[in-house]
Computed example of a mutant assay.
Amino acid sequence: MGLLDKLRWSRKTTDISATDMVVFIVGPSGSGKSRFMDILLQNANVHAVRANKGQRPGTTEVYAERCRFEGMQSDIVLVDTPSFHTYEDPDGEETLKKWMDSKCTKCKRAGMLYTHNIASNPHDGNLVISRHLEAFRRTLPRNLTINTVHVVPTVAFGARLPAETIDALVTRLQGQADGVGAKMSKTPFDGKPETAWDVVQELLSRCGLLIGR
């Protein structure tokens, strides 16, 4: 193990430095945030520097994992954020802000993956992308601004939707993404590690970070 690796191992998983790239995974409850992160960590190109042990917290808490991506020198910190506008306590916005104030004071580079279940209720105002982005931005410390938002359409596990229905739902979601200046993945997340890897590469590329293949 080299010196750089030893330094990475000695650093706490959620201690974020100015050289780290942080990827926040944001979205409504049931949109597949935790599932996306878990499947991404299964990709052969992603190496957890020190895997968190114990039971995975629920959607009301913050879960962070320090990783090394093949082809990148800087560590990536994946952050599974609590859901906002869930009608239930505790408030996800307050929980995330406390975490930001504690862990993200030195954070300089970050992007957002926004997961959205395309089959969710289109009439529920609490599922609108803009509402969640507004809540998320209120949690950010003054030193950090998120300019890169990548929307990831998801389909609930086990759902069976005709291709034409999926196309229509993705088109509807594209309208919301356009409204907040976000880009969107071309196809819904299908639960495969290679798809999760491609989605993250798209985000990092938009952040000006290229991953070697």
Score class of each variant (00 low, 15 high):
R213L: 12
E65G: 01
T171R: 15
G58Y: 03
E134R: 13
V128F: 10
A48Y: 00
H150G: 01
Q201L: 10
S10W: 09
R56C: 12
F69I: 14
I129M: 11
G175W: 00
F36M: 04
S185I: 04
V152Y: 05
E70C: 09
R206V: 03
D38K: 14
M1V: 14
G158I: 11
K103E: 09
V49F: 10
K186H: 03
D124I: 00
G71Y: 12
S10E: 13
L78Y: 09
N45G: 14
M184E: 10
P122G: 07
Q55Y: 01
G30N: 09
G208Y: 04
K97A: 07
G191L: 08
L41D: 05
A64Q: 12
Q55M: 11
K183N: 11
K53N: 05
W197S: 03
G54W: 08
V200M: 10
D89S: 13
L40A: 03
T145R: 13
G181W: 06
T95V: 15
R137C: 07
T165Y: 05
A177F: 04
R206Y: 02
D124V: 02
V180H: 06
L144V: 06
K12D: 15
P141A: 02
I118W: 08
C107G: 02
R8Q: 07
S17P: 00
A44K: 15
A18E: 15
K6L: 13
V22Q: 07
V46Q: 01
E134P: 00
R68T: 13
L96I: 09
S130Q: 14
G125R: 10
K108P: 00
Y87M: 05
D75M: 04
G158R: 06
P82I: 07
D101Y: 07
M1Y: 11
Q176T: 04
R138H: 13
H132L: 05
T154E: 05
R213A: 14
C107K: 06
V170H: 06
V152I: 15
T60R: 09
G58V: 06
